[in-house]
């Protein structure tokens, strides 16, 4: 069983934080197939959030095929997130290194690079969640 926590200053919507924490736990092996997630009542009594926020997070996780809700019993993990993307990391890192070298050659310092990445990632039209 995992416990949720919320970061009020992160700017990430609470339901998204819950989803991220479940996905993180699945990735790290803290949650495995068959594990039960805390009930909505347990979550709201622990972190003092709106029950609808928890419902929404659990619905989204179900939609992502990671958990299944069994009415009256609980919400259970159906799939782990062993990192299949790991293989892709190295080539992506290589491309990123090339890109960073280009950015530095163009005269950007670390701060400008961070700002550029942050604004690009946050552009709403490209957001995928």
């Amino acid at each position: 069983m995992i416990e949720f926590h919320l970061d009020g200053r992160s700017g990430v919507a609470p339901y998204m934080q819950l989803i991220q924490q479940v996905r993180q736990a699945l990735r790290l092996g803290l949650l495995v197939e068959g594990d039960r997630l805390p009930t909505v009542k347990e979550v709201v009594a622990k972190v003092a959030i709106n029950p609808n926020t928890v419902f929404k997070a659990y619905r989204e996780l179900e939609y992502q095929g990671l958990v299944v809700a069994r009415p009256g019993v609980g919400t259970f993990v159906t799939r782990t997130l062993t990192d299949q993307s790991l293989a892709a990391h190295e080539s992506l890192r290589e491309e990123l290194r090339t890109w960073l070298a280009k950015a530095r050659a163009a005269g950007l310092d670390d701060e400008s690079i961070d700002a550029l990445i942050a604004t690009t990632v946050r552009t709403p039209t490209e957001e995928s969640t």
Binding site: G8, V40, K41, V44, A45, V47, I49
Partner: peptide
């Protein structure tokens, strides 16, 4: 919030502080 989860009731609460309401209100 425990009450809300149990009873599916509607709740209206007021505050002059947004931070009080941020997590609990939808």
């Amino acid at each position: 919030m425990g009450f809300t989860a149990d009873d599916k009731a509607s709740v209206i609460l007021s505050s002059h502080l947004v931070s009080d309401l941020e997590r609990v209100c939808d």
